[in-house]
Amino acid sequence: MVNDACMIELRDVTKHYGKIRAVNNLSLSIRRGEVFGLLGPNGAGKTTTIKLLTTLSRPDAGVCRIAGMDVHQNSLEIRKIIGVVPQENNLDKELTAHENLLIYGMLHHVQNRNEKISETLKMVGLWDRKNTVVSGFSGGMQRRLLIARALLPAPSVLFLDEPSIGLDPQIRRQMWDVIRKTGIDGRTVIITTHYIEEAEALCDRVCILAKGKLIALDTPEQLKRSVGDHIVEYVDTQGRLVQHICKSREEAHDIARQENSSVTIRKSNLEDVFIKLTGGRIE
């Protein structure tokens, strides 16, 4: 039976590329209306998971479901309710912004197309550039157009694969505002990222992946709390960075007092969670 609150479900999903196990027995469920983050380093299986859920790849084992439907047995129905912003910019760069959206709108059977295209372009701030060929756009503008394209058919589920990769910090924050707006109207949003701040800023819950496996899944706050709220950092006499994870601010200050060298106390982040759970780094 389908749980109304569950929009996306992966059960025991495995996917190989040759001998590499890109996704390893992954099970998770994502609630309707949730902004859900898949966080992990390159090769963690984030993009493969997105490909499995967006009908581009078939799993070797396990089941992927969206809105209660098996993704690969109902691929046409699934494609009607999803929007995808891929990691690679796959806009038609020799076409204008309007032409890109027109073709996409036709492919997705969007009614009142011209009206919807205007609204969407205005939402991402590209209305005045609608007749500009995309190759003349900056990287940030092209990313915004990718999001506009995915939103045009008003999908119930939006997949954003590394939405701000390669963008400078200022443009990245503009992108976050656009993504926040898309999440407000109750659609389910799945974001893959290896930017810690992005996951913390946007996601209701975060799933940490490493080598295709689920390492942890919870709200960003809860994940950080599980490893310790504060981090004490200093460089030891041999030039190595030493970190202590502390459960409280008082504990952090106690450790800092015992050290002679210059010490930094900061709040923990998801990178610390990842390091604690896997021993590696995300970025």
């Binding site: 967006t54 009908t55 581009l56 046409l76 129905e77 494609r79 009607k80 999803i82 995808v84 891929p86 690679e88 796959n90 806009l91 038609d92 760069k93 996409y104 492919l107 997705h108 059977h109």
Partner: peptide, 14 residues
């Protein structure tokens, strides 16, 4: 290379 074919196969067209 351009990955625009993926836009077609991710659309609800046969």
């Amino acid at each position: 290379y351009f990955k625009t074919f993926q836009v077609l196969v991710q659309s609800p067209v046969t």
